[in-house]
Simulated scan of single mutants.
Amino acid sequence: MTSLFSPRVSRTCLSLAAAGVLLGASLSAQAATWRGWNVHPDGYPNSLALKSFAEEVAKTTDGRVEPKVYNNGVLGDQPDAIEQARSGALDFGNFNMGPMGPVVPETDVLSLPFLFKNVEQMYRVMDGDIGKRFAAALAEKNLIALSWFGSGARSFYDTKRPIETPDDVKGLKLRVMNNDLYVQMVDALGGNATPMAYSEVFQSLKTGVIDGAENNFPSFESSNHYEVAKYYSLTEHLIIPECLCVAKSSWEALSDADQRAVRTAAENAAQEQRQLWAERVAKSRAIVEKAGVKINQVKDKAAFQQRMEPIYQAFTDKHPELASLIEEIRQTP
Rank of each mutant, 00 (worst) to 15 (best):
E321D: 09
L4H: 08
Q331W: 03
K132C: 08
T207N: 15
K160N: 12
N216W: 00
I295K: 04
N96W: 09
A323M: 02
L75I: 11
R161H: 06
A49P: 07
Q203K: 14
V69T: 10
K160G: 12
L174G: 08
V176D: 04
E327Q: 14
N142A: 09
V186Y: 04
I240M: 06
K248G: 01
Q259S: 04
V228M: 02
L234E: 12
V262T: 08
L115I: 06
D211K: 08
S28D: 13
T235Y: 00
G76Y: 02
K141E: 14
G128Y: 00
A303T: 09
S47Y: 10
Q30A: 14
A323R: 09
K173A: 14
I210Q: 08
I295L: 14
F220Q: 02
L14N: 09
A25K: 07
S249W: 00
E66N: 15
Y312Q: 11
S52L: 14
C243Q: 03
P41M: 01
F156R: 00
N216C: 10
D42L: 13
Q184F: 01
A247Y: 00
E267W: 03
P45R: 07
D80E: 15
T165F: 00
A85L: 12
D91S: 13
D158P: 01
K283Q: 15
D42Q: 10
C13L: 14
M308D: 11
S219V: 12
K206Y: 01
P79E: 04
S204Q: 06
R274D: 08
A314R: 12
G20V: 09
S47D: 04
K206F: 00
A89T: 10
G63S: 08
V183M: 12
L322Y: 13
A193N: 06
P99Q: 05
A17I: 12
P241Y: 05
I130G: 07
E267Y: 02
L234V: 03
S52T: 13
V281I: 09
T235R: 00
N192C: 03
L50R: 03
R8H: 11
F92S: 06
W251Q: 03
S6L: 03
K294H: 10
Y157W: 04
N192G: 02
F156Q: 08
R124C: 09
P310W: 09
F304N: 07
P79D: 06
T235N: 02
L234T: 02
V74I: 15
S199E: 15
E289D: 01
K283A: 14
G36Q: 07
E200S: 15
N118Y: 03
V65Q: 08
A193M: 05
G24Q: 13
E328C: 06
D77H: 12
D258A: 11
V69C: 02
S15W: 11
Y70G: 05
N94F: 15
R64D: 14
V246I: 06
E279R: 05
A302V: 10
G171P: 03
E279I: 01
T159F: 07
N71S: 06
K290W: 04
G76T: 09
L50P: 00
D256H: 06
S204G: 10
I329V: 12
I240K: 00
M122V: 05
N94S: 15
E289Q: 10
N216V: 08
L23N: 10
A31Q: 11
N71L: 10
D91Q: 14
P166E: 07
V209A: 15
G190K: 02
Q297V: 12
A229M: 04
